[in-house]
Design a protein around this nucleic acid. Structure first.
Length: 490
DNA sequence: AACGATGGCAACCGCCCCGGC
DNA sequence: CGCCGGGGCGGTTGCCATCGT
């Protein structure tokens, strides 16, 4: 016995809404609200529509501040990041995008974004096949725990702790316990490969997180721990509902609002880096990945696209998707041509340890601030509103990203490496000690803008941008020995 | 120019959750 | 505690515009 329909289907109008119907509905709701009863509403106002249809029309089209079309790159990134983490929970994703409806995002994903990424996937697969044919040798990572790292976590490296600023959300079913991917999204099927691909780019897989968590209490045997804070903030609860637990990297206190999309793993030797934060690729702009394979595979490090492809390749290697892992456990970052660069090539381009400090913190409702510091030089600063500047030492330099703030002039307090001040900006910084792993992308020409979503952040605008300019060519993982926070000067 | 294919998107369908009774 | 019904949500459909042949 089925449920009684919410309305008499024979008496209600279906199909597109007329301007008159729109006007009637809009005028009534704006004046009286919905009255908490959508079913009764159409009768009240004389519309021959199903209450649900009225609700849908209002929510998806008529209510104020609805945006249609014209998704920005940032919105793309957010959608991708969230899709990776929580799947097709469109309403949750929509909650992170002001003015967007779940329906809109769903349509956008299904009709455009997915194809965009599938195009990228095709290219990546082709590149992987090409690499496999070119470089058959390979090995194995040096220890299993390295495989536990992607997706975020902290490794105890003797006395040194490393934090990942990025830890994607993990879905938990009601009552607790992690779910596997099938449970997570039983209808994936054809989308599963895409999602896996995205997750791979993100730097982890749900199964990996699952594995990580299940090993949290025993990981110390491998000298590995995971500083996941699985508690909810109120905002997080509102955001994700009770079925979702967000895993947070939690370097002391003020970092706890951070859940960006940087992924890194690290070997025991502090001079050996294991993997590059591949999620960066996604967040650096999908437009870098044409739907159709381009013809630039032969280019090596001459543009962002190739660099990012190489990051992907490195990640793929890491996950054993191909077999490009070298002897010392470093992940092979490979290229796609006969001139291919091995990871060893790339590692020479990696910043030395201790050269970069990163500041990240949730500022306030205006967004999240972050700064990348190279020695005494702040090489990048950003807020959730966008990047606000990219400065060389003691010099206010042009902003990377337009029109957000006047670029601040940052002056490093050279007397004390662990403190610094902003000379002319609404922000001041507080640097705290404690190693943190992060990564910097280096390239010779343009500034870099890598935008990250803060999945657990209550604010839609939150994000971490790390910028670096005037640095060596290449892409590498860096060690952040100090991290800190920014706050607004009062 | 005509027609079929494809894409984009608004709207619908039906299941599920949850609060009220 | 169980039932009922409204609301919410994700998946799907169908219409229309555009594109390609």
């Amino acid at each position: 016995m089925g449920r009684a329909p919410c309305c008499d289907k024979a008496k209600v109008k279906k199909g597109p809404w007329s301007p008159e119907e729109d006007a009637t509905l809009k005028a009534y709701i704006e004046q009286n609200g919905t009255g908490g009863n959508w079913i009764a509403l159409p009768q009240k106002i004389g519309l021959k529509r199903c209450g649900k249809s009225c609700r849908l029309r209002w929510l998806n089209y008529l209510r104020p501040n609805i945006k249609h079309g014209g998704f920005s790159e940032e919105e793309d990134n957010i959608i991708c990041s969230l899709y990776i983490s929580i799947g097709s929970r469109w309403s949750i994703i929509a909650a992170q995008l002001p003015g967007r409806t779940d329906n809109d995002i769903k349509n956008y994903w299904n009709t455009r974004l997915k194809k965009k990424l599938l195009g990228k996937q095709r290219k990546e697969q082709a590149a992987a096949a090409k690499r496999a044919s070119l470089k058959p040798q390979i090995l194995k990572t040096e220890s299993d725990h390295s495989l536990m790292v992607p997706g975020g976590g902290m490794i105890m490296n003797n006395q040194t702790q490393y934090y990942w600023p990025e830890l994607p959300a993990v879905i938990m079913p009601p009552g607790g316990g992690l779910v596997n991917q099938t449970q997570l999204d039983p209808n994936f099927k054809d989308q599963e490969s895409l999602k896996n691909f995205l997750i791979k780019l993100q730097g982890g897989r749900f199964s990996d997180y699952h594995h990580q968590l299940s090993n949290t209490t025993t990981a110390t045997a491998n000298n590995v721990q995971y500083p996941f804070d699985v508690s909810f903030s109120q905002d997080q609860e509102q955001l994700y509902d009770s079925t979702i637990t967000t895993m947070l990297a939690s370097p002391p206190t003020s970092m706890n609002s951070m859940n960006s999309s940087t992924t890194a793993s690290r070997l025991q030797d502090t001079h050996e880096y294991n993997i590059i934060g591949a999620n960066m690729i996604i967040n650096q702009g999908l437009e870098n990945y044409p739907v159709e394979p381009s013809h630039d595979d032969h280019l090596i490090y001459n543009n962002n696209h190739q660099q990012r492809l190489d990051i992907i390749n490195g990640v793929e290697s890491f996950y054993g998707m191909d077999q490009m892992v070298n002897n010392n456990g470093s992940t092979g970052t490979t290229s796609t041509s006969a001139e291919s660069n091995s990871w060893e090539d790339i590692s020479s381009l990696v910043y030395p340890n201790s050269m970069l400090k990163e500041e990240v913190n949730n500022l306030d409702s205006n967004g999240t601030g972050s700064a990348a510091i190279n020695g005494e030089e702040i090489v990048g600063i950003a807020s959730g509103l966008g990047s606000i500047g990219c400065c060389e030492k003691n010099i206010g330099t042009p902003p990377i990203n337009q029109d957000i703030h006047t670029p601040p002039k940052w002056i490093v307090n050279e007397a004390n490496e662990t403190s610094m001040t902003a000379s002319s900006d609404p922000f001041e910084s507080i640097v705290k000690s404690g190693p943190i792993l992060g990564f910097v992308e280096k390239e010779p020409i343009d500034n870099i803008s890598s935008s990250f979503s803060f999945l657990n952040s209550p604010s839609l605008t939150n994000g971490l941008d790390i910028h670096a300019n005037q640095v060596e060519e290449g892409v590498g993982l860096i060690e952040l020995e100090n991290w800190g926070s920014l706050k607004k000067n009062q």
